[in-house]
């Protein structure tokens, strides 16, 4: 469909997600423009991570639709009607999205290099040489050139997370999802990961959606910050506005609680 650069990259249209009787997202609608860096903040359980998991097709929507560049993600059109997407449709659209997880989730049975080259060779059909050249560049970017042949278990958490970022980028995604990527790290390892993300944000045109508790980082790199509470966006503003003069009381409470903790 349309790839006009003025169209939003991500569109949530009245998306509802329930876990049993618990409504996590309640008819949520928002859009993200191409190349935007959007940070989702809010108390835990407010539905931020669910948004990323829905985009990565790790969860299914219960109502509403999600589109990527105007193409339905969770649904497909068949005979003029919208039906839930089948596996073939999902795997095609999903290819444009990458994700970095809180727990890294590197494959421990593969070397660092294989972790990065596996999907480009198997999914994108790159030759081994092409995939390895791409991996070497990415490892260089995340500052781990010397770890190509190491195994994930030999790396620190921060190094593992930087490999996971390289692995996601090796697929050249249009959209990169960052799910609390520094929450599982020892404090001294957080800065290295954040500086890599800052570089990606400033040097690529990848659309990024980030769930984080690192407010300074969110303030530095975000184009927009969305404050969530109980499955709804209660405030959506540029970071300077949201962090210095939030309108909503819940946002003020949340920010003072988070900033005082730090």
């Amino acid at each position: 469909m349309s790839t006009d650069s003025t169209d939003p990259t991500i569109t949530f249209d009245a998306v509802t997600k329930r876990f049993g009787a618990h409504v996590v997202l309640d008819e949520l609608s928002f859009t993200v423009d191409p190349g935007e860096f959007v940070t989702l903040i809010g108390p835990s359980g407010s539905g931020k991570t669910t948004i990323l998991r829905l985009l990565m097709t790790l969860e299914k929507v219960d109502g509403g639709t999600i589109s990527i560049d105007g193409e339905y993600l969770s649904h497909m059109e068949r005979g003029g009607k919208l039906v839930p997407a089948d596996e073939k449709h999902l795997s095609r659209v999903r290819r444009r999205i990458g994700m970095v997880f809180q727990q890294f989730n590197l494959f421990p049975n593969m070397s660092v290099l294989r972790n990065i080259t596996e999907a480009p060779t198997r999914v994108l059909g790159l030759s081994k040489g092409e995939a390895e050249a791409r991996a070497v560049d990415l490892l260089d970017m995340v500052g781990l050139s010397d770890k190509a042949s190491a195994h994930p278990t030999q790396l620190s958490g921060g190094q593992q997370q930087r490999v996971a970022i390289a692995r996601a980028l090796a697929m050249r995604p249009d959209v990169l999802l960052l799910d609390e990527v520094t929450s599982a790290l020892d404090p001294e390892l957080v800065a290295g990961v954040l500086s890599v993300l800052k570089e990606i944000a400033s040097t690529t045109d990848i659309t990024m959606l980030c769930v984080t508790h690192e407010m300074q980082f969110a303030r530095d790199v975000s184009d927009r910050v969305m404050m969530f509470d109980s499955g709804r966006v209660i405030e959506d503003a540029v970071p300077e506005k949201l962090f210095t003069s939030p309108e909503h009381d819940r946002t003020k409470e949340f920010l003072s609680a988070v900033l005082n903790r730090a």
């Binding site: 990565m56 097709t57 790790l58 795997s91 999903r94 290819r95 999205i97 990458g98 994700m99 997880f101 727990q103 989730n105 590197l106 494959f107 596996e118 999907a119 198997r122 999914v123 996971a164 692995r167 996601a168 697929m171």
Partner: peptide, 13 residues
Amino acid sequence: VGQWEAATALSLP
């Protein structure tokens, strides 16, 4: 379960 999810996120067949 993270291993399955990482594999899905990479679109591995």
